[in-house]
Design a protein around this nucleic acid. Structure first.
Length: 417
DNA sequence: CGTCCACAGGAATGACGGGCGG
DNA sequence: CCGCCCGTCATTCCTGTGGACG
């Protein structure tokens, strides 16, 4: 099959020439550094809030808000890992469990993963939710601990499953004899309280913590700290650092994004055999990340979601830049015909559009055109060439790229029954 | 003013595949 | 093997609505 010499060469080269990174793990956004710059206040506040468990009493439920990449998860993990070692020192019966609700996905799986952290084994499907909850509660009670539950990205769960799970959890203490539970909820969405039952909300947010976005200067400091650990000296140009912070600051101060940019820029530079990361590499990295995001998103999408995206693409070509739901449905209809696939309802397409919006491939907003109805204006959130790249190689729908949909005249008023 | 368009988006329901416990 | 439950995708039916037109 392959010629081993080719690979030898690649590996050789990598080992000998990888001179940019001192430690590339440090630059991953999920790496937990010893120091979290510009979050001292939050660390102190959270520390004060959970401290009572060291003396054996339950701490308040805590609610943490802030957009993505503002350090919520990092601060929480940081504080709790320190709490854990302190607790060992004092012999306090404290345990905690971190659950990412978006990854976990459903109430069932949240309870299952909580149970597993207690050492219970739960089949990953097959039981009723109530059954799992009961087992969890019984298992927890028998451990006689203060149990801190961290529910990260809790908004993802609540928005599509409702707040039933939160209701159960906020009331669980009433049914426990020997153990106590404290909740830490972390939400990316500041409007989450609107989705919550007021009783649940008030009980959940006995204590509240807000994480403001970082500004460009703060991002720069964060990157600087990390790059000292991650890159060799002089491997990183100043302008590259600045542009990373500026790009991420423009996007609501997202440190995660800044770090990803920096790391990928480093990888790009390395691959090009360059001995310094430059501004140019960062721009390259930006494209790279975007491309991966799209490929990744599309990999987990259904055929119909892709066809919707493609419809928007086609409409954008003919029609300026934005399309309405109805227009998209028409083109989508044609594409389905072309493929010989049965088409979904317009209702369904509506939610597919919303999902594509949520992943960031489309941008939609409702507008009213008065007499001519109320609809959504939808446009591509990613570049057209990117779409061509990604779809062009798709065996199933690649050929639809050049398909000419019959786009009706732009003038409205049509169709009667 | 009220109408009425072209949808938005909630609720209920169902088909289906995966997986349990007994 | 059966009966039950889960999660996902989809349909059906539905009520709600901003604002240009008349």
């Amino acid at each position: 099959m392959g010629n081993p010499n080719i690979l030898d060469d690649v590996f050789e080269k990598f080992v000998n020439e990888a001179t940019l990174f001192k430690d590339r793990e440090v630059l991953r956004h999920d790496y937990l550094p010893d120091k979290l710059p510009h979050r001292e206040d939050q660390i102190r506040l959270l520390g004060q809030a959970v401290a009572p468990v060291l003396k054996g009493s339950r701490c308040s439920n805590i609610f943490i808000y802030g957009k993505t990449g503002t350090g919520k998860t990092a601060v929480t993990k940081y504080v709790l890992s320190h709490l854990e070692s302190k607790a060992k020192e004092y012999g306090a019966p404290v345990r905690f469990c971190y659950v990412n609700c978006r990854m976990t996905g459903s109430e069932y799986r949240v309870f299952a993963s909580l149970s597993q952290s207690l050492g219970l084994s739960i089949p990953f499907t097959g039981l009723s939710v109530g059954e799992v909850f009961d087992r969890f509660r019984a298992g927890l009670d028998s451990t006689r601990t203060l149990f801190i539950i961290i529910l990260d990205e809790i908004d993802a769960l609540i928005k599509n499953r409702g707040d039933g799970i939160m209701y159960e959890l906020t009331r669980i203490n009433e049914a426990l004899q020997k153990s106590k539970v404290a909740l830490i909820g972390i939400s990316n969405d500041l409007r989450l309280k609107e989705f919550l039952d007021p009783r649940v909300f008030s009980s959940l947010s006995e204590e509240e913590l807000v994480f403001r976005p970082y500004d460009a200067g703060e991002l720069r400091n964060i990157l600087l700290e990390r790059s000292k650990l991650g890159f060799f000296e002089d491997a990183l140009s100043d302008s590259a650092l600045s542009i990373c912070s500026a790009l991420a600051a423009a996007e609501h101060g997202d440190a995660r994004r800044a770090l990803d940019l920096l790391r990928v820029a480093g990888e790009v530079a390395e691959r090009q055999g360059s001995n310094k990361v430059t501004e140019e590499h960062v721009r390259e990295a930006e494209k790279h990340i975007e491309h991966n995001k799209v490929v990744e998103a599309l990999k987990n999408s259904t055929l119909h979601a892709k066809l919707v995206l493609l419809s928007v693409y086609h409409l954008g070509k003919a029609n300026g830049s934005s399309a309405t739901t109805g227009e998209i449905y028409d083109v989508y209809n044609e594409l389905c015909g072309e493929l010989g696939v049965s088409l979904l309802t317009q209702r369904r397409i509506g939610t597919l559009i919303n999902e594509l919006d949520a992943i960031g491939l489309l941008n939609s907003k409702v507008v009213s055109m008065g007499r001519y109805g109320r609809t959504k204006k939808i446009r591509l959130e990613i570049s057209r060439s990117l779409i061509q790249d990604v779809f062009g190689t798709d065996a199933r729908i690649g050929r639809l790229m050049s398909f000419q949909p019959n786009i009706p005249k732009n003038t409205n008023t049509r169709s009667r029954k």
